[in-house]
Design a protein around this nucleic acid. Structure first.
Lengths: 336, 336
DNA sequence: GTGAAAGCGCTAACAC
DNA sequence: GTGTTAGCGCTTTCAC
């Protein structure tokens, strides 16, 4: 039967349809009008041959790619995974494919490798998840060789970006705790991407505004278990009545530590999280938190990137504010 | 200053280094020996020009790609996200880049689009996450045009695959519950990828082996909240003393429903999950479950794919058994 | 509208 | 070892 297994090329299609190669190309790209008759012949030939154009050849000659890159720090943490999902869905809807590049540390070599991979592949553009130091470093190294959009929780100068206004939401959440009658609110921080962290900033702003004391910050890692020891320490301090955690998973760790220390949430201690993790509402007690639309963030980020690629618009910024969700993990403090 | 912004090509490098284009190519690929002197000149020119070879041109002529595809159903669910992370880490270590293609439904159009994207990009190979019907459909449609590896929880004929032996672990977990003195074990199933689901199969096998009655299965969705109503129903039935859930997130939903119905775990009801989700050990009470090494599964899958690509080996199968983790959500039933 | 010719940036094959 | 030549599969001029 001849060429079993071999992929047909555009000239196979042209031959079969009885037209020239450029005509097939025109049908494929829609770049120029083709007579209905020839168009039909070409489409028939494509279907019969199961022809698929080679992305490599197209990119090589047209210098236009339908693939975008995503540079990210960790693909499986909740916020990252959801953001990537949002990017992918938006990209897919526009016919783009997504290439993932993970950067685990801000080391020069690591970042260089990631940036090289991106540049080598002649991508249409890149979305950088700038939630952590590796993301920040990658962004800097990327230069202006191709369209780039950054995604994060804090506005910053430079490239176009989509953000979730963490500071505003953190401030509002702290206001809520203060409004319940707590003298102050303690804070457990997740690893910040830079010196200034939106969640911490908003928390501090609310305390200052209310003239409440600003207690020292507790630092957790990304591992929820790191919250357990912190929770125990917090429970042991009678001055602590309310805690705002950098994310829900840390809050869950903290609550476990509080429980191990024999205290109850929210009776002895109010705990608030951040993100609205899918398990936050199932936790006991259900967690008060700020709902972050990560998938939406990813979608807006891709939208911005698309505009940068097409040059159709010069919008460079998209911000959204997380919505607070009040559940049962926060309450008024006990009277003393 | 001339060509600002334009990417240098291999001939720019050749010119600058005073050698021919193929010599630069030899330095780049290491395909043939180059004299130390010329090699040095070439490397200097590459560094000065910040040259990066075009992946598109390379793929076009060599027909070898350093990009693999991952076809998956949902990138943000725990097991999927971890598996993808494992694939990416293993791929990165070998210099491969990962392209993600999401298939949300087993519809012909959806699957065709995903397969087309894969084929168009001339990938080195594809890893299919065959945990759900879309994955199964994609696998069938992929044909034998390029190396493919499937990842799942149940062994099956066909392409090379890496599996986590869910049935064995589920059986062992059910044995554990039965051994505690429960007359039987109820089961809440997550959406199965095919008619036969490893977790359900193992559960049933254990019950049959023990001559215990096989109660009707409860069907949950992937949303942990779907477990809540089921938990309430289970709590209302005095015959139910032990429940084995298809995954930890569903188990958490079930436990929430049980709590809402005023019953306690494990005193009134034992609940076991599956996966060892990062929050399982922080839950109250900490969850008895089967630890699945999803990242390891991804890594083994990539290893199998690499062998299929190189043809270095004809290993077609890699299986691992989840390890049971006994925590406090399971206990002996109350005496009646 | 359509075809002929050129060439994207690289590697493969073949001389020397 | 090294250079010359050819060509991967497409899109892009440019005639007609």
């Amino acid at each position: 039967m001849g060429r079993a297994g071999k992929h047909p090329t555009i000239s196979d299609v042209a031959e079969r349809a009885g037209v020239s190669v450029p005509t097939v190309s025109r049908v494929l790209t829609g770049a120029a009008r083709v007579s209905p008759a020839k168009r039909e012949q070409v489409e028939a030939a494509i279907a019969e041959l199961r022809f698929r154009p080679s992305a490599a050849a197209r990119v090589l000659v047209s210098r236009k790619s339908r693939t975008i890159g995503v540079i990210t720090g960790n693909t499986s943490r909740y916020g990252y995974a959801e953001t990537i999902r949002g990017i992918e869905i938006a990209a897919r809807a526009e016919g783009y494919t997504v290439m993932i590049t993970v950067v685990e540390s801000p080391d020069e070599d690591e970042v260089d490798r990631a940036v090289s991979a991106t540049l080598t592949h002649a991508l249409a553009g890149v979305v950088v998840l700038k939630f952590d130091p590796p993301g920040v470093a990658a962004l800097q190294r990327l230069g202006d060789e191709l369209p780039v959009v950054a995604l994060s929780g804090t506005r910053e100068a430079g490239v176009p970006q989509a953000v979730l206004d963490e500071a505003a939401a953190a401030e509002e959440l702290t206001d809520h705790l203060l409004g319940l009658g707590h003298a102050t609110v303690h804070h457990v921080r997740v690893p910040p991407s830079r010196r200034v962290d939106g969640r911490t900033t908003g928390w501090k702003r609310a305390l200052r505004k209310a003239h409440a004391p600003v207690p020292p910050v507790f630092d957790a890692t990304w591992d929820p278990r790191s919250g357990v020891a912190i929770g125990r320490a917090l429970a042991a301090d009678p001055d602590v009545t309310a805690v705002f955690c950098g994310n829900d998973e840390i809050a869950m760790g903290v609550m476990r530590g509080v429980a191990e220390a024999g205290k109850r949430v929210p009776e002895d201690l109010s705990v608030a999280g951040f993100d609205d993790h899918p398990l936050a509402e199932l936790w006991s007690p259900p967690l008060t938190t700020a709902q972050q639309d990560f998938a939406g963030l990813g979608g807006r980020g891709f939208g911005l990137l698309l505009q940068a690629i097409d040059g159709t618009s010069d919008r460079r910024y998209s911000s959204e504010r997380p919505k607070l969700v009040f559940r049962e993990s926060t309450a008024a403090p006990k009277r003393r």
